[in-house]
Lab assay of single mutants.
Amino acid sequence: AVSDRLIGRKSVVMEAISPQNSGLVKVDGETWRATSGTVLDVGEEVSVKAIEGVKLVVEKLE
């Protein structure tokens, strides 16, 4: 599936994300709604860990 190619990809937070609120990330020039178990600020680099419905699950790059 097209979405499977996103797992493991680097992306950049475009709208802040917290455990309570989804935000936005940009992956390969496309904007996606995303969630995370931690707070992520605009501009942080993250990695796509999973896809749940139409949202990406991301975490901060170490």
Rank of each mutant, 00 (worst) to 15 (best):
S47C: 15
V46C: 15
E45G: 05
V57R: 08
L6A: 03
S36L: 02
N21A: 12
A34E: 08
V27T: 04
G43K: 02
V27W: 03
I7G: 02
S11G: 15
L61E: 09
V27N: 03
S47K: 14
S18P: 02
R33Q: 15
S11D: 02
G23A: 01
E62F: 11
D4V: 11
V54D: 15
N21T: 11
V57A: 05
G53H: 05
S36K: 00
K10W: 07
I51A: 06
D4W: 03
K60E: 04
G43F: 05
I17T: 04
E59Q: 08
V42D: 01
S11E: 03
V12G: 02
K10F: 07
A1G: 12
G43A: 04
G29K: 06
R5H: 11
I7Q: 04
R9W: 04
E52D: 14
K55E: 14
P19T: 05
E30L: 07
S11A: 15
V12E: 05
A34K: 01
I17V: 07
P19V: 05
L24A: 10
V48R: 01
G8M: 00
T31W: 13
G43I: 01
G8W: 00
V42L: 06
G23C: 01
G29I: 00
A1S: 13
E30D: 09
K55T: 15
V25I: 08
G8N: 06
S3E: 10
V13G: 02
V27I: 14
V54T: 14
E59K: 03
S3I: 13
V58T: 02
L6V: 06
R33L: 15
G23H: 00
V13T: 02
G37Y: 11
N21I: 13
K26V: 13
V48M: 02
K26M: 15
E62A: 12
S3V: 12
L56C: 03
E15L: 08
V57K: 04
T38C: 13
V39D: 11
L61K: 07
E15P: 00
L24N: 04
A50D: 07
I7K: 05
S18W: 07
V27Q: 02
D41R: 11
V13N: 01
W32K: 09
E15T: 10
A1F: 12
E44N: 05
L24F: 10
T38D: 15
V46N: 02
I51E: 02
V13K: 00
A50F: 07
E15A: 10
G8S: 04
V27F: 06
I51T: 05
A50V: 04
D41F: 12
V46L: 01
L61R: 07
S36R: 00
V12P: 02
V58K: 01
A34M: 00
R33M: 15
A34P: 08
E15G: 05
M14C: 10
V39R: 10
E59T: 08
V54N: 15
V54L: 14
V54C: 15
L24R: 09
A16Q: 11
L40S: 02
K10A: 08
L40H: 12
G43N: 05
W32V: 09
Q20C: 14
S11T: 12
T38Y: 10
S22F: 07
S3Q: 11
V25A: 04
S18F: 07
K55Y: 15
V12S: 05
R33D: 14
